[in-house]
Amino acid sequence: MRYGSLDEFLTNGRAALGKGPVAMVLVEDDVEVSTTLRHHLQIGFGTVLALMPAAFDLPADVTETVHRIDFDATADGAVTVAVNRVIGAAPGLWFYYCFNAEYLFFPFCETRSVGELLTFHAEERRDAMLTYVVDLYAEDLGKHPDAVSLEQAFLDRSGYYALARLDPAKEGAPKERQLDFFGGLRWRFEEHIPPTRRKIDRIGIFRAKPGLILRGDHTFSDEEYNTYACPWHHNLTATICSFRTAKALKTNPGSTHDINTFKWHNSAPFEWHSRQLLDLGLMEPGQWF
């Protein structure tokens, strides 16, 4: 089904939100759009929304299974506008949001669905899940000038770290169970990344509720949603494996000529399997086995 605008979808297509969990894919360009949509259908999302420019095409098999919404995902504030509008339309439903050329992985996702993941997470009285955005990049930028290659994707196996998230309302005291996470290309090429965009943490999975607001830094107005775990034990986390930063660095005129390769001594081929991400400590199974 195709809708001419987000308003049209929320007016005529709201029934699609009755089958969750819902994945929202914000399409910024025409890179790996269909593979992104297929990946999230395959891991078990009940509904997948593609918010994308009207000029882009989709293969027939994807068009039949995805709710397409004409939308400019590159406009200022587009992400918060889209997510917050949908939150208000479907309180109680689990949502996930990402961009094209981003792929969600969670513990044991090869044998368990995202619905099973969220059922367990909800049983632990959690309404949001921390996701780490882990950069992927092509091995050979000569062959892949946009830095995107599914067949020859690499990631950083180390170089990740966390800092306390300070609370201005409490004279800079650290916020409870909240951290700012850094690493990947945003750390290694930080001179090309604005300071406000260097974090790699995103509350990418959450349950909508009345009054909830997504903020521009990928955190929510409810501070408990921004925590990495509950007070009594570790909780599940997930990973969004993303070509978005590599793609931006190689297509931006201000950085592309300074970067001949993204590989370094801590690069490793991406295996497209949750076990690798668990072994590298890039997501947490919590009490889920």
Rank of each mutant, 00 (worst) to 15 (best):
D30W: 04
E8M: 14
S274N: 11
E64R: 12
V27H: 01
H121C: 12
G44P: 01
Q42R: 15
G172M: 09
V83G: 00
R188C: 10
D135R: 04
L282V: 08
A15F: 06
A128E: 02
A15C: 03
G204N: 08
R14F: 07
A73F: 02
F105C: 03
K209H: 10
T11D: 13
A246R: 01
R207Y: 03
G159V: 14
E271G: 08
A50W: 09
D61W: 07
C109E: 06
G286I: 06
F108C: 07
V25G: 01
P194S: 07
G184W: 00
H39V: 10
Y225T: 06
R207I: 05
F154C: 11
D76C: 09
K19L: 13
H67S: 12
T63R: 09
E123T: 10
K175Q: 14
D279F: 05
P53M: 10
S158K: 14
A101N: 12
A229N: 11
L104G: 03
T131D: 00
G184H: 00
R85V: 10
G184A: 01
M52W: 01
L41W: 01
T219Y: 05
P168F: 03
R202Q: 14
E284P: 05
V79G: 02
Y132M: 15
P194Q: 06
G18H: 02
E191P: 00
K209G: 00
T261G: 03
L212G: 04
E171I: 09
M283D: 00
L10F: 00
G18C: 01
Y97A: 03
G216P: 07
G204C: 08
T65Q: 15
M283K: 04
A90I: 11
R112A: 05
Y132H: 15
G254R: 11
G88D: 08
F120Y: 15
T256K: 15
F99Q: 13
Y97N: 10
T131P: 04
P231M: 07
G4R: 11
L236N: 11
W272Y: 11
A101C: 13
F105D: 08
V22F: 00
S242H: 02
Y137G: 08
I205Y: 01
N12I: 08
T63W: 03
F220V: 06
F45M: 00
L179V: 06
M129Q: 12
S149H: 04
D201I: 10
H273Q: 14
N84L: 11
R186L: 09
G77H: 03
Y161V: 09
D76Y: 09
R186C: 06
L150G: 10
R207V: 04
D30E: 15
E123S: 13
M283S: 01
Y103A: 08
I213A: 07
D222C: 04
D167W: 01
T35I: 12
Y97L: 08
D156V: 11
E64G: 01
L136S: 02
L41M: 09
S274M: 11
L6C: 04
R38L: 13
C241N: 12
P174D: 06
M129Y: 03
T237D: 05
L280K: 00
P21W: 03
T47W: 05
F289K: 09
P195Y: 09
Y96M: 14
N235Q: 05
L249Y: 01
V22P: 02
G183C: 02
E116D: 14
P269I: 10
P269V: 10
